[in-house]
Amino acid sequence: MSKMIVLEKLTKRFGDLTAVDAVSLAVRRGEVLGFLGPNGAGKSTTMKMVCGYLTPTSGTARVLDHDVVTEPMAVKAAIGYLPEGAPTYGDMRVSSFLRFIAQVRGFDGAEIGRRVDRVREMAALDEVFDRPVETLSKGFKRRVGLAQAILHDPEVLIMDEPTDGLDPNQKHQVRTLIKDMAQDKAIVISTHILEEVEAICTRAVVIAHGKLLADGTPEQLLRRDARHNAVVVKLAADRAKDIVAGLAALDQVAGVDALGDPVNGTAAFRARPRDGASIVLPVGDYLRSNNVTPEEMYVERGHMDEVFRAITQGEAEA
């Protein structure tokens, strides 16, 4: 069974508001799915339904072949879930909080200690292990929430904004942890930090107004940006005019834009590819055949931000 999470026309309405609108989706083992969308897009609501917190208005979700509507207990037992903001019982010590989770997860005796020690190491909680959760910094609180979610080594891990509000070092730690676990699990994370998608996700879906708008690898999403595979060239300003005209005439090039006015005798421009194909070779060949040595030349990968805005705002205008 490779499809570990299956959403079937999952829908949630709050009164007149349709928060999640017939979302269908499947996540396989080994995938890290990034759930993208503007605030209020329905990301959290979707996750809450999959985890059995909210009951779907219609449709359903299945986790490891257990239906969340008819077998919520089996789903809850199978999933590790980090709710938004990583809520934890503030008056408990980290150690007793994790022991509580281990007990509720059905572990007994020495196994409780083993499980707690394992996540204490994984989430690097040693120095705060005996402190009340409410006295911890945001980064540690988040890691306690993460430790709680992975305590029973779940095959399905769902995390709502796992790195929100963390500093760059802490983000890196959490991402490394997620990557290390990714192989034999199905992981879903929601985020609006787009670099995160490129950093850890093998697949990304974009959701806005409760609808699924895009689904693909981060690479495929980046390809939607007109600047994906564009080549930026900087060269002496006196040759720039002919070269720009010549490049624009190439078959593979859709157009050439100047990047500002020449600075210190150097002009910069960007050649945009047709259909996102790689154009670095034809552009290089052309420059060489014209005996031009560029001062700088690089390929752009496209910007997730641009793609995200194009997808989500396009929907808003439609």
């Binding site: 999933i79 879930y81 938004e84 059905g106």
Partner: peptide
């Protein structure tokens, strides 16, 4: 208030 209800209700507890 603290949101822990979401944690509690997604643990395998009725």
């Amino acid at each position: 208030k603290t949101g822990t209800i979401e944690l509690l209700m997604t643990l395998p507890v009725t």
